[in-house]
């Protein structure tokens, strides 16, 4: 007999069978009150913190999305200003901050807010 065959024989030896009543007996011994172990309490807190974190992250995302959408709609891009051709004033990128009338004569050296105010038809008297 080799050691390997002995090992095989050991592995295949019949094992003692547990009595059928044992399982029910073991179930009956579990206390109804759940053990509030330190780990359980810690785990519950971990779940709470995780839930709170997830909720907070979702709220921040929603807020950021809404802010982006709002901001994008309320402030027109600067390029739009240069393409306003139906007004009597024109503004070119090459000659920034200068306003010209239809004859290309410079009106005034102005800043962007001034220009925005000026291209408002109500303010220029249309």
């Amino acid at each position: 007999m080799t050691l390997r065959s002995l090992e095989e024989r050991l592995r295949h030896l019949p094992q003692p069978q547990a009595p059928k009543t044992l399982k029910a007996r073991l179930f009956a011994t579990i206390p109804d009150t759940q053990p509030q172990t330190v780990g359980a309490v810690r785990l519950k807190w971990r779940f709470r913190i995780r839930n709170f974190g997830a909720t907070a992250a979702a709220a921040v995302l929603i807020f950021a999305f809404m802010f982006t959408v709002n901001h994008a709609l309320s402030i027109p891009p600067q390029a739009l200003l240069t393409e306003l051709e139906d007004v009597s004033l024109c503004y070119t990128g090459r000659q920034q901050h200068f306003l010209y009338d239809q004859n290309d004569a410079p009106l005034a050296l102005t800043s962007l807010p001034d220009m925005q105010r000026l291209i408002n038809p109500n303010e220029i008297g249309y």
């Binding site: 069978q17 399982k23 579990i30």
Partner: peptide, 22 residues
Amino acid sequence: IRLGRRKAYETLICQHYKAIYG
């Protein structure tokens, strides 16, 4: 089981009681 759920512990018993008894 760690959260103290009885049903989960019963599953654990079913899985291991024969080995422990043996």
